[in-house]
């Protein structure tokens, strides 16, 4: 297990000004990592919440600092916003007596496929996977840059396992569309896993409405009970809907792995370097 009592970890999330669900998994993972003692300090920072990327370094006592973006893919935020706001000059930044180590985003982790399979199995216990269509839902516009690419990569990996009857990428805003799920799936059971970092508006509200399992009630996201009513029987199928993959507690391990990966890739990274 990673043991870095002399180092600090900053987990960077997007956050939201309209609901608390966006940052919740990032805070949860941070609390879990702090409890297990892998790092001497663990902090969160957000683009749209506090502490902000401009504030968080003031919160850090230690001089050796790992920064892991809790993002589903590389893209605008991981390549432009986070480095700019933290004033990073590359993977390694020496500043004010500190060594800032910018790690790869969690979504890049090779175990993502394993987590998606775990979540799919948990949401549909006892359902034979060979009789199951598995849908991995992404956003599907250029809004999230490479998230569609990342989702496709994971679907290819899942397909290669041969575990599920069929596996599809599906998107909110481009084909194959979520709301047409019954037109391209053929199995009697359908498992849907949102490829998002948090249960924000998309996974609580937008996707359930598109799937047809929920009316747009206008209720606040946190007040809805979408994930506890499985399975749903509609359009002649049995549908199981999972919460966003980023809420999976094992995500914390992936965050730590990204820090460990940084060490392997930058073995000479020291404060005196």
């Amino acid at each position: 297990m990673l043991h870095k009592p002399e180092s600090a970890l900053i987990i960077v999330g997007h956050g939201s000004t309209v609901n608390p669900d966006s940052s919740a998994p990032t805070f949860d993972h941070a609390e879990a990592i702090l409890r297990q003692g892998s790092f001497g300090e663990v902090h969160c920072a957000f683009w749209k919440e506090e502490p902000s990327l401009r504030q968080v370094l003031h919160m850090v006592d230690r001089e050796d600092v790992y920064i892991v973006p809790n993002f589903i893919s590389e893209g605008y935020f991981t390549r432009t916003v986070i480095p700019r706001e933290l004033e990073l000059t590359g993977p390694l930044t020496h500043r004010d007596g500190r060594l800032l180590k910018y790690c790869e985003p969690v979504g890049n982790h090779e175990r993502m496929c394993e987590l998606l399979l775990k979540r799919a199995a948990e949401v549909a216990p006892g359902v034979p996977t060979k009789d199951c269509s598995l849908l991995i839902v992404g956003h599907g516009t250029n809004l999230n840059d490479n998230s569609a690419f990342a989702a496709k990569r994971e679907v290819d990996r899942i397909r290669d396992t041969g575990l599920y009857g069929e596996v599809f990428n599906t998107y909110m805003e481009e084909a194959p569309l979520v709301n047409e799920w019954d037109s391209y799936t053929t199995c009697p059971n359908v498992v849907v896993v949102p490829f998002f970092i948090a249960d924000g508006l998309h996974s609580y509200q937008d996707i359930p409405v598109l799937l047809g399992i929920e009316q747009d009630t206008g209720l606040a996201a946190s007040q809805r009970d979408i994930f506890r009513q499985n399975p749903y029987h509609l359009r002649g199928r049995t549908l199981y809907y999972a919460s966003a993959i980023g809420t999976e507690p094992l995500f914390g391990e992936l965050i730590l792995d990204q820090a460990a990966l940084f060490d392997r890739q930058h073995s000479n990274a020291t404060l005196s370097a």
């Binding site: 902090h43 506090e50 502490p51 902000s52 504030q55 968080v56 003031h58 919160m59 004010d96």
Partner: peptide, 22 residues
């Protein structure tokens, strides 16, 4: 840090002369 994120840290930075306004 939950109630007022980073606020005690910024006060310390201010006292140390390390909080240049932007």
């Amino acid at each position: 840090d939950h109630f007022y994120p980073s606020m005690t840290a910024l006060w310390l930075s201010y006292l140390e002369g390390k909080l240049p306004p932007v």
